[in-house]
């Protein structure tokens, strides 16, 4: 009798164990099935094979080298104290960790410093998109009184007087000399080399298991679905190259409207990339938010009424705390592997 009871118990335990095992296997297969990116995700978000090149400015090592020197050279500013890299600092996600930029004479500017990461993939440069190419953008901050405050007419002879630069310009653009055009082209060629490195999200897209947490994968689903972030942050670079008023508080800057006076553009700014977003706090064109949690809370609230035209894509999302946290986990999975960067030793006078 006892023996039978023992056998029954043992059998029950065994069945329970097998069933548990089956359950675990089944649930694991469900989870792993849910973890795989769809074909559509792979097509849409995987890195393009090539980095876009400038018109009449195909990248060469010499052009990139010249551009790198110019980018890090404070002699490109009126004060000889500010370089492009002062604000676009490689140690700070190619931005400056300030709410809004600080320029000539320590003056504070109205807009934050956008990262130069992946600008090669952007169709419009500056927060208001007023430049249609990097070549058209590159000289703007050098000349702007509040930024680097440098007259280009004075800069050209300054550079021509530095033998090392004459050599670098000749190697990069033979016979073209030091000019506004070659300065802009070289800086652009360098900037096109600053592209995001492989992130956990990229590896997941390629089918590598275990690189994205379940929370981050869930966050990606919410990002595309309930939160509708992909209405603007779409594709490999997580930008639609578009302009939207996302309802920031206390905003007088009308952004893109100053370039194109169309009602929907009142208070609209360019959709920035989300690549390496964890490295480029504070966020938004005016540095309104310090953390990604604050950013997600803003979108969850549907933005706020301001002096401009709120994008109709902005709506109250009613996300749970868990969902908001998952989106942040996903955003952090977009941080690329650290890439060592060597700053140049600049040509001496």
């Amino acid at each position: 009798m006892k023996q039978n009871t023992f056998r029954r118990n043992a059998m029950t335990k065994m069945i329970a164990t097998v069933l548990m095992g089956v359950t675990v296997v089944l649930s694991a297969s469900v989870v792993s099935a849910a973890k795989a990116p769809s074909k559509e995700d792979v097509k849409k978000f995987l890195r393009p094979m090539e980095v876009p090149q400038g018109k009449n400015n195909i990248s060469t090592p010499e052009r990139v080298e010249l551009g790198k020197n110019l980018f890090f050279d404070p002699r490109l500013s009126g004060s000889n104290f500010i370089s492009c890299a002062t604000c676009h600092n490689p140690s700070l996600g190619w931005s400056d960790a300030q709410p809004t930029a600080i320029g000539h004479g320590m003056g504070t500017l109205d807009r934050s410093t956008p990262t130069i990461l992946n600008t090669a993939y952007q169709r419009f440069q500056f927060w208001d998109g007023r430049a249609r190419s990097l070549e058209k953008q590159a000289l703007g901050p050098i000349e702007a009184g509040g930024e680097m405050s440098q007259s280009l007419d004075l800069l050209i002879p300054e550079l021509q007087a530095i033998p090392g630069y004459v050599t670098l310009f000749e190697a990069a653009y033979p016979g073209e000399g030091v000019s506004k055009k070659t300065i802009a082209k070289a800086i652009s060629a360098f900037e096109r080399t600053i592209v995001s490195s492989e992130s956990a999200f990229d590896r997941w897209l390629k089918g590598v298991d275990g690189v994205m947490s379940d929370e981050a994968i869930k966050g990606f689903e919410i990002f595309k679905g309930k939160a509708n972030c992909t209405a603007c942050h779409d594709g490999f670079n997580f930008s639609d190259n578009g302009f939207h008023n996302i309802g920031l508080k206390d905003m007088e800057d009308m952004g893109r409207y100053a370039i194109k006076p169309i009602k929907v553009l009142k208070g609209a700014f360019k959709t920035p990339t989300l690549r390496d977003i964890d490295l480029t706090s504070p966020y938004m064109h005016n540095g309104a938010y310090k953390t990604l949690d604050e950013v997600v809370d803003h979108y969850d609230a549907g933005g706020f009424k301001n002096a401009g035209t709120l994008s109709p894509n902005m709506k109250k999302l009613n996300l749970s705390k868990k969902e908001r946290k998952a989106i942040v986990a996903f955003l952090k999975s977009l941080t690329g592997d650290p890439v060592p960067f060597t700053v140049p030793v600049l040509p001496v006078q």
């Binding site: 190259n241 578009g242 302009f243 939207h244 194109k260 169309i262 929907v264 609209a268």
Partner: peptide, 12 residues
Amino acid sequence: GEAEIECAIHPE
């Protein structure tokens, strides 16, 4: 005549 037509939100 000729007219340039765009989407203000997506200028591409």
